[in-house]
Design a protein around this nucleic acid. Structure first.
Lengths: 106, 106
DNA sequence: AGCATATTTGACTAATTTACCAAGAAGAAT
DNA sequence: ATTCTTCTTGGTAAATTAGTCAAATATGCT
């Protein structure tokens, strides 16, 4: 990583902020399996419909999901596949931490 | 990514939350060049000293940095190198977005 | 037109997060 | 001992964010 401008730093932190909510991660995880309507996502998350709608709006503003409207429904899909790479790396880090914790107990 | 438990989702989102602040990213970026004392980090960020100290405490709790106390000073260093990978990916995503935006203007 | 379904938006509340200030703690220097 | 430096912590005010409910919008159906 070279010199980071204040502006870039701000943008990066905002992306992370969008990813810093379990419900939004759940939504993205669900979308990984393919396009979903709002109602399908509501069912997958057990949160209220307006709430999910707002989270989706946020994800869309951040450019992480795409929205397609057809008839009555809105279909959402992943717009930035790199997010799964991010999650995988973090999961790896968490697994490593756990391993270390277990080793220190032994 | 396989099935994600609610618990793991929560942990992952918390890691992202820690990374979702420009000052903390600046600190981490500074630490990428090597160990630093609190005061050096204050100088690098132009934020107040207590504020940096709190951000450092947060980063430490999250397991992202390591703290070593020697004499009067506390030396901080990177504990989870994977964070730079994360930032690189996000930067790549941002660059891609920008490119797309520029293309659509042309 | 009138009703039903799917989704978004606005107003509001509660919770979380950030930054600031002042005070505290720990070590080094005199 | 006391004073200086470095760092951490507690209290608090301001800002941001998540959630809920109710109302609005948009489309499809009869």
């Amino acid at each position: 990583m070279k010199q980071m401008s204040e502006a870039l730093l701000g943008e990066v932190s905002q992306k992370f902020k969008v990813l810093s909510d379990p419900i939004r991660l759940r939504i993205l995880h669900e979308l990984q399996a393919g396009e979903r309507t709002v109602n399908e996502l509501v069912a997958a998350t057990r949160s209220s419909q307006p709430n999910i709608s707002k989270h989706l709006a946020l994800l869309k503003t951040a450019g992480l999901v795409h929205r397609r409207k057809q008839g009555n429904q809105a279909y959402f899909s992943i717009a930035a596949p790199y997010i799964f790479e991010l999650c995988d790396i973090v999961c790896g880090g968490i697994a490593e931490e756990l391993e270390k914790k277990n080793q220190s107990l032994a």
